[in-house]
């Protein structure tokens, strides 16, 4: 298990990084935390001739609130930066909690939120809660900059809309919003260091006991993180009750199309979607952003 030989670049500015990505084209890979890329390199699953490290771009590490935009999370923020961010604790504790459920402490110290998104693994823990909170991302190219809603970012397992020969994901924005509660429930086969069998994130906007609106996003049960639209429609404008949430759980499992793999059967995952959805809804309704 050795890293193959490659040219290593650590550009000092984002512009320089974007130029490198464009100039080096498909032979280059962008390195953030490395918790996925280094493993792929060691196993020969990717064979770039150049690696462009973003390590010098400290401006991509901050988590701040920008009035009019929302909470802006730099793509190089590590999972533990999310876990420990006072700003997220105050506004979206659910994002910190979701980050804390990811992998183990060593990985959380190295791995980055941007890397987690671009890696586009169906069982990733951050996309569901970020999508539930209506996040969007910024992709910067050598001459371009565009924003993409996160829910339309993923196109399949390990596939997303980023242009790999021109763009770098720079930030994730959680817009200012009316939601009153959100949470991510992860079901894995061990308490730490285990990939999700199923993950469900929800965000709700409540007016008293009335569900004004909700967003439900399912992880690990579809090729990409998927919104449970049927369940959301079923809840809209209704007064919440345990029965209603149970119905929403049933509806959510109809939106999933899981596979059977080493961690669980499709049948089990479908039922977990049902259970986790109703539990997540109740938690977000009664406890806020947790």
């Amino acid at each position: 298990m050795f890293l193959p030989d490659f040219d290593y670049h650590a550009p000092e500015t984002l512009a320089e990084a974007c130029d490198l990505v464009r100039d080096l084209g498909p032979s280059a890979k962008v390195l953030a935390g490395g918790t996925d890329l280094l493993i792929k390199l060691k196993h020969g699953l990717v064979t770039p001739t150049a690696v462009i490290s973003l390590k010098a771009l400290d401006e991509l590490k901050t988590i701040t609130h920008v009035p009019g935009r929302g909470v802006v999370i730099g793509a190089r923020a590590t999972h533990n930066d999310l876990v420990n961010s006072p700003l997220l604790h105050e506004r979206f504790l659910s994002v910190s909690e979701a980050a804390h459920k990811l992998a183990n402490n060593q990985v959380r110290n190295r791995g980055t939120v941007g890397g987690n998104l671009v890696n586009a693994i169906p069982s990733a823990d951050l996309p569901p809660i970020l999508i539930a909170l209506d996040a969007w991302i910024t992709l910067v190219g050598s001459n371009t900059s565009r924003t993409v809603p996160l829910h339309s970012f993923f196109t399949g397992p390990s596939c997303c809309v980023i242009d790999p020969v021109d763009e770098i994901l720079t930030e994730i924005v959680l817009p200012d919003q009316q939601t009153t509660g959100s949470t991510y429930l992860k079901f894995a086969l061990r308490r730490s260091g285990a990939l999700s069998v199923t993950g469900v994130a929800v965000a709700v906007t409540m007016d008293g006991d009335t569900i004004v609106d909700s967003r439900i996003c399912l992880g690990a049960v579809f090729p990409v993180p998927v919104r449970a639209n049927d369940a959301e429609d079923l809840l809209r404008g209704k007064t919440w009750s345990d029965e209603l949430l149970a119905e929403a759980g049933e509806a959510a499992s109809c939106c999933a199309l899981p596979i059977t793999d080493i961690r669980g059967t499709a049948e089990y995952r479908l039922d977990l979607v049902r259970v986790l959805t109703k539990r997540a809804l109740k938690r977000a309704i009664t406890e806020g952003h947790v």
Partner: peptide
């Protein structure tokens, strides 16, 4: 699953 990711031994928190 010839690895410690998918062959799950307990962790301290378990």
């Amino acid at each position: 699953n010839p690895n410690l990711s998918e062959y799950r031994i307990p962790t301290a928190v378990d």
